[in-house]
């Protein structure tokens, strides 16, 4: 069962804060679960899985110390408990090969961190609309 939650794996406090702020400006925003690194995110999702309340969406920063976002993505996509959860990768790189690699690893989306806060707000709005609100209409098989 999914709950109205977004898991954000992001080591940068500022980026996490911007994300939180951008999210909070939405109408009935989803709850943000912030993990500072890949290990924390894995553990968080483990707990969620035990409690049978998975977040609707995970957003993973690619460049993180320790386990990076792509490694985390591959782990989640190969685990039956999390493989159907939509995952969006996030990075400041707009290099085509970086984007392609993310999709190759199974990402459902790729988000280039915008330099303007306003752009981030709009992006977060769209993501919320598509992945949280729209997806809610369709049941996700597990």
């Amino acid at each position: 069962m999914y709950i109205n939650q977004i898991l954000l794996a992001e080591d940068d406090t500022t980026d996490a804060e911007f994300f939180q702020r951008a999210l909070s400006r939405l109408d009935s925003p989803p709850e943000l679960v912030w993990c500072k690194n890949g290990a924390e995110a894995l553990k968080g999702l483990e707990d969620c899985s035990k409690a049978s309340c998975m977040p609707r969406l995970a957003i993973l920063d690619i460049k993180m110390p320790g386990m990076n976002g792509l490694e985390l993505l591959e782990k989640l996509k190969s685990d039956p408990r999390t493989k159907d959860m939509p995952i969006i990768m996030m990075s400041s790189s707009d290099e085509p090969q970086d984007i392609a690699r993310a999709y190759d690893c199974g990402a459902n989306g790729y988000l280039v961190k915008p330099s303007r806060f306003q752009d981030l707000r709009e992006l977060v709005g769209s993501i919320n609309y598509f992945w949280i609100k729209t997806n809610r209409l369709r049941p996700i098989s597990s």
Binding site: T14, D15, F18, K63, S93, D94, E95, K113, P114, S115
Partner: peptide, 11 residues
């Protein structure tokens, strides 16, 4: 440049 320099600018 693409990653690290942009982060503080974003901030």
């Amino acid at each position: 440049v693409s990653h690290d320099l942009r982060a503080p600018l974003r901030a």
